[in-house]
Amino acid sequence: MADFQGKQMIEISGLTKRYGSHTVLDNINFAVDSGSIAAIVGRSGAGKSTLFRCVNLLERPTSGTVRVDGQELTHLSRRELRTARRAIGTVFQSANLLRRLTAAQNVALPLRFLGLSDEEVHQRVRELLERVGLLHRANHYPAQLSGGQRQRVGIARGLATRPSVLLSDEATSGLDPETTRSILRLLTELRDDLGVTIVVITHEMDVVRSVADVVAHLDRGRIVESGRVGEVVRRSDSPLATSLLPTDPAPAPLAGEVVWQLRYTDAIVDPNWLTRVSRELDTDIALLSGLVETVGGDHAGRLTVRMSGRLSPATVAGAFAAYGIHAQVASAADELAVAS
């Protein structure tokens, strides 16, 4: 994976997990740089959750190694593993809060396991709840909290032992878009403020687009595609890019017109490209559909436009290419119309 800050916080190599004769994970090689957010995507049943559980050794891999912060986990004794796990915060799907404990008591749990004094626990829990914006809900029970609030408590609990790595399994699934955004904002803050390395397991491409630096696509137990998100979305024939920036099917063009599919190929694209190309070619460009976003600091875009068929395809493609945009004819009205 791309090298942001040099150090690799998580290194998974040759990881295989079998249940009997069923191979759930097949020779996974995956690394995450320190202080970045990695997303693991895939359909349900692809092995995402098993991979998640292998990173903190909730499941023991059949073979392969898992290295977190330079420490090889699969060789540790039970006691050593307990200590190592404290450096890995875990946020579970549906938060997994103890229903009989208040928000504060749930967050305090890992600190109690560490054997900190009441004073230290109290202090740290306050800090954590403040960070996730739930200090005012400290004494509420999970049943009295909303889904998003419960998830925030789960994140605060995951951060309790000041881990260098935070694993999150579908932490935003089932939450409404507004709540999802607030959770994702929180994750980004954790990366930026605390330098926490975060791995999110998700099936939601929005999540990947908005927070992930790198992405790996898991399919039937294998990583079939991976890379920096900003770079992946510019790939031409990538299923992952298509699902990250989906486009509507091109509509049938009107007579004498051509529908073009555009795709950003450069990391930085002049935001005024549409008007500029229009002026240069002296033609109108009808924007039919499209998605333009900043993904992992890079510009990414996939759009469908309609233009007059008078222009030669090479001229059009060349004009777009000058702005770092790949243009491809999606459909022409008919051969005659293009030729005329």
Binding site: N56, R82, L98, R157
Partner: peptide
């Protein structure tokens, strides 16, 4: 899993999670 993942011992999990819940 919450207990195991936060580095709790079995006894701590029994006391703080199983019995509590």
């Amino acid at each position: 899993d919450v207990g195991v993942a936060s580095g709790a011992s079995r006894w701590q999990i029994i006391r703080s999670i199983q019995l509590t819940e």
